[in-house]
């Protein structure tokens, strides 16, 4: 994982509430055995019609969405399955952060392991972002702040360990492997 300190981008807004992982990446795309190239399946059933043609009115198909790194979604983003394919698809499509008022637990865990920052904001900040698609924002992982176009800032929660891993590009597995003596001791005392 690459170290991630700041993200500057225009936003893409998907205002629907409760966007579930089956929408982020439908199950028929989960038959892969690697994680490359899943970006093309991102929001597949919203992006493409029954014949596989792009729907021109869907936000990710519009020219202004090109290169966007920050997705603003309705309340409770990422509910549903444990598929890590959801953050893999988002990251493969160029996203580095998702902003919502609530982010589902498993999605959040998965996102953090892939350099995708879950940014939970208050309702007022969220309402403003929903109303202003394409807003230029800046996310500072170290300061845990989201800066809005006119300089207003919102703080977002981030576990100290997750922040450390994001800032330093550290893989959690390495930390767990360093715990082997404690794990050995735990196993022998049970």
């Amino acid at each position: 994982m690459e170290p991630l300190r700041t993200i500057e981008s225009r936003t893409v807004v998907l205002p629907s509430a409760n966007i579930d992982t089956d929408q982020i990446i439908p199950a028929r795309f989960l038959k892969v055995t690697d994680k490359q190239g899943l970006g093309k399946a991102l929001f597949a059933d919203w992006r493409y019609d029954g014949e596989g043609k792009p729907r021109p009115d869907f936000v990710l198909n519009r020219p202004e969405a090109a290169g966007a790194k920050v997705l603003v979604a309705g309340d409770n983003f990422g509910c549903g399955s444990s598929r890590e394919h959801a953050p893999w698809a988002l990251v493969d499509a160029g996203f580095r952060a998702v902003i919502s008022t609530k982010i589902a637990d498993i999605f959040r865990n998965n996102a953090l392991k892939n350099g995708l920052v879950p940014v939970v904001v208050d309702a007022a900040t969220h309402a403003r972002l929903l109303a202003e698609p394409g807003a230029a924002v800046r996310i500072d992982v170290e300061a845990q702040t989201l800066r809005l176009p006119e300089g207003a800032e919102a703080r977002f929660p981030l576990d100290a360990f997750s922040r450390y891993c994001l800032l330093n590009g550290v893989d959690e597995l390495g930390f767990l492997l360093s715990q082997r003596p404690a794990i050995d001791a735990f196993e022998s005392r049970r």
């Binding site: 598929r83 498993i106 392991k113 892939n114 597995l173 715990q179 196993e187």
Partner: peptide, 22 residues
């Protein structure tokens, strides 16, 4: 509880997970 694929790897390799208490 359900986990993602990175965590599947963590458990395969260490039989442990990093968790905040819910």
């Amino acid at each position: 509880f359900g986990i993602g694929t990175s965590e599947v790897g963590h458990v395969l390799a260490t039989q442990c997970l990093l968790q905040r208490k819910p």
